[in-house]
């Protein structure tokens, strides 16, 4: 079953066209990754899916329902949560308050239990739960951002460059977490610069270039695709 179906979206910043007809699909229970260089339109794609930017044309379907043009908070209600680029921690609020905000729309009785589970899964957050979000390190902030998004119990989790600016050990930890999220049944769409790591955990991949999808296919095929190897997995990824 398709969780997400994006068809020919075109998004503009003023007169500048950032997306020139992007189409992609995300199957239930999979990890799908979007790769591409800086300025290819990866973040714009994520922001458009999450409702932060409205596409000029094209449609976005979520679980078979047309959700194009809905506000971000309405999409959270439907089951889409975004962990944006740069993590977007509420730096003036405590770690606990950040987590509370993750469950903002939920009124069910399991919020408390989910909070406990999250603190158990991320002991570092439990340790710092009364600290302001802005005082955490980059890796801790990323974990907080992911934990916060999970507390909304999304059906589709959007992760925008979760490994950006983090030390290699932390990056490995983040990818491990993404895998666990998938194994727990949440579908994941992840944008990454770190193509090799992303393709290793992903089931399917799309490559964006100047606002268009230029290549897509199964992740294990992309790992061997000479065009990808040359452009994204070559010497660059060894650094």
């Amino acid at each position: 079953m398709k969780v997400l179906k994006v068809s020919g979206i075109e998004t503009f910043y003023g007169k500048i066209q950032a997306l020139k007809g992007v189409s992609l699909e995300v199957e239930q229970g999979k990890i799908v990754t979007i790769l591409g260089a800086n300025g290819a339109g990866k973040t714009t794609t994520m922001k458009t899916i999450a409702g932060l930017i409205k596409p000029k044309t094209g449609t976005i379907e979520f679980l078979g329902e047309n959700v194009t043009g809905l506000r971000p908070d309405q999409l959270v209600k439907k089951g889409i949560s975004l962990v944006p680029e740069g993590r977007a921690i509420l730096s003036g609020m405590t770690v606990m308050e950040n987590l509370d905000m993750g469950a903002y729309q939920r009124k069910d009785k399991e919020v408390e239990k989910d909070l406990e589970d999250v603190l158990k899964r991320f002991p570092i957050l439990k340790e710092r739960k009364n600290q302001l979000g802005g005082t955490l390190s980059g890796g801790q902030q990323q974990m907080l951002a992911i934990a916060r998004a999970l507390l909304a119990r999304p059906k589709l989790l959007l992760l925008d460059e979760p490994s950006m600016g983090l030390a290699p050990l932390i990056v490995a930890e983040i990818f491990k977490i993404i895998k666990e999220i998938k194994d727990a049944g949440t579908t994941v769409l992840v944008v990454e610069q770190n193509a090799k790591q992303a393709l290793k955990i992903a089931d399917y991949g799309y490559v964006l270039e100047t606002g268009k999808v230029i290549i897509h296919g199964k992740a294990k095929d992309l790992l061997e695709d000479p065009r990808i190897v040359e452009a994204y997995l070559g010497r660059k990824s060894e650094k």
Partner: peptide
């Protein structure tokens, strides 16, 4: 309170509040 925290989140960053589900 829930609404009070939503107000603070909105004050800190409108976009962040909205992707957390706040009707800003």
């Amino acid at each position: 309170t829930r609404a009070g925290k939503a107000l603070r989140a909105t004050a800190e960053n409108l976009d962040t509040a909205s992707i957390l589900g706040v009707n800003t």
